[in-house]
């Protein structure tokens, strides 16, 4: 068995991220609150089926999108996270592609998860399964499953950790609030935050606080750090509302009858009922 080799800067970064998470948990313990809920009767009721509140067209950060009612993927619509100069240039280059109608959306190929944090901004419905040892976020669209361990474990050791779509999440309960840290996300190599083309690096780490508001909404407060993409932490807030009682979630099988394949240049084609391409104008690259 070969040992995984991680470059020194990467090792240092992972170690730093884990240190931040550990420091946070220790801080909460010393604050006099239990870090791990061992009694399920103390956990909040997040049962039922939920749907996102914000996000016109799946926009990830409603607080910074311009124009304010802009849809992700529409020409001229963008968000304003505190991007570094290099990543602002990267974002602008992607926005130009979006303006040509070639949205570089990985999930349109029906083969990969949306990943975190995008999975908090998807259409269709959500389920939040809360147990003392773990919380699952299940999105109908995709589907995506996010596992948040709350049994006291830490992130895996460096040689057991590699970038994945959803990353690795560990956290704890304090009163009725779930706080968790997420590291080792795939970043720009396989995920976007929304169809405006916004991306983060695989060095990003996210601390998320989730709790139910007095209005009955589920509120997720994300603090995103990324030493490559962001000049400073980026705070994003999203909400979910409960759907009417009895609502069901269903299978979502993107590959079942995908009649919109994507060309190598990003053009979305349309197929007829027999699988033949309908489009008259097709990129030369196809």
């Amino acid at each position: 068995m070969q040992k995984q080799v991680i470059s020194m800067p990467r090792r240092i970064n992972i170690a730093r991220l884990k240190l931040v998470t550990i420091t946070f948990c220790i801080g909460q313990i010393f604050a006099g609150q239990p870090a791990i809920a061992t009694d399920e009767t103390t956990l909040p009721d997040w049962s039922g089926v939920w749907e996102r509140v914000e996000g016109n067209g799946g926009i990830f950060d409603p607080a910074t999108v311009k124009p304010a009612d802009g849809r992700a993927g529409s020409p001229g619509v963008r968000q304003f996270p505190p991007l570094t100069q290099a990543w602002e240039a990267k974002y602008q280059a992607i926005l130009e592609v979006v303006a040509e109608g070639r949205v570089p959306d990985p999930i349109s190929i029906c083969g990969t998860p949306a990943g975190f944090p995008r999975l908090l901004a998807l259409p269709d419905v959500y389920e939040f399964i809360v147990r003392p040892e773990q919380t699952w976020i299940i999105t109908e669209n995709g589907p995506n499953i996010m596992r948040i361990y709350t049994d006291g474990r830490d992130h895996p050791a460096d040689d057991e950790l590699w970038p994945t779509f959803t990353g690795d999440s560990v956290g704890s309960w304090h009163d009725k609030t779930l706080t968790f840290g997420t590291v080792s996300m795939l970043g720009e190599k396989g995920t976007i935050l929304d169809r405006s083309g916004l991306v983060l690096s695989n060095q990003a780490s996210i601390t998320t606080r989730m709790f139910k508001t007095e209005e009955g909404l589920l509120r997720a407060e994300l603090t995103i750090a990324d030493p490559l993409a962001l000049r400073e932490p980026w705070n994003v807030v999203r909400h979910f509302r409960k759907t009417p009682g009895g609502t069901r979630a269903f299978d979502y099988a993107c590959a079942e009858n995908n009649r919109n394949p994507i060309t190598s240049s990003g053009q979305t084609l349309t197929l007829d009922a027999e699988g033949n391409t309908i489009d008259v104008e097709i990129d030369q690259e196809h």
Partner: peptide
Amino acid sequence: LAADLATAHHSSAM
């Protein structure tokens, strides 16, 4: 329609 297409799994640019 724009609101509806927002939930599509692909671009609606076509």
